[in-house]
């Protein structure tokens, strides 16, 4: 199938494969978690619509924090693609 596989090609291949795996599986958790936060914010606003702004901001800050693991995955994937 391949004429000959050199060591550097093997490393490059695993780096690309790892990038895909990293971003794919890393996206699951933040996606579910941030959706939860958005849902609970809607529930909170339905109870006290006058605090909508405060609740939305709290939701966004909470989501930003839970997104950090997704951003770590993105960083690792980009490093694997462009640096390794």
């Amino acid at each position: 199938m391949f004429d000959q596989i050199t060591g550097s090609e093997l490393i490059r291949a695993f780096a690309l494969l790892g990038a895909g795996l990293c971003m794919g599986f890393g996206a699951i958790g933040p996606g579910i978690g941030e959706g939860f936060a958005a849902g609970k914010a809607c529930e909170g606003i339905s109870r006290s619509p006058e605090h909508a702004n405060l609740l939305t901001r709290t939701m966004l800050v909470g989501q930003a924090v839970s997104e950090s693991t997704g951003i770590y995955s993105l960083v690792v994937a980009l490093l694997l693609i462009f640096v390794v």
Partner: peptide, 11 residues
């Protein structure tokens, strides 16, 4: 990568 965001947006 689409599994989590899909479920979360549904929530």
């Amino acid at each position: 990568g689409g599994i989590g965001p899909g479920i979360g947006a549904g929530f």
